[in-house]
Amino acid sequence: MTGPPDPGLQPERTRLAWRRTALALTVVMVLTVRLALTGDTAGTGDTARTGDTVGALLGGAAVLGWGAALRLCWRRATGTGPARAYGRALPLVALATAGFAGFGALLVVRGLG
C-alpha cells in the first residue's frame, strides 16, 4: 500500500467485506447443489432424485458459477492499494447473486414436477 496509513483502516474493512460476501456465496452454492442433487425432498429422506444426471449437471453449473464469482471476490479481497479502478467485479458479483436466485427458483419449480 502507498500513502500514509489510514486510521480508519478503510481498505482492510473493504477487503474483509469481500471475504464475508464470498462466504455468503459459498453457503448459497452449497444449498443450491444440495437442492439440485436431491430434488425437493423437504428433508424427509426421500431421495428419489439422487443420482439423476440432470441434477448432477445443474449442480455442476452452480459450482462453476460460484467459482467465477469467488474468483472476483478474491481478487478484490486480496487487491492492494486504494486507487483500484472500479472494475466490473461489483456488477458481476451482483449478477451472480441474481443468477443464483433465478437458478434456485428453477430448481424449486423442477422439484414440483
Binding site: V28, A42, G104
Partner: peptide
C-alpha cells in the same frame, strides 16, 4: 436467497 433455498429443502 439462502432462506429461499432452505425453505424449499427443510
Amino acid at each position: 436467497v439462502a432462506g429461499g433455498l432452505a425453505a424449499a429443502q427443510f
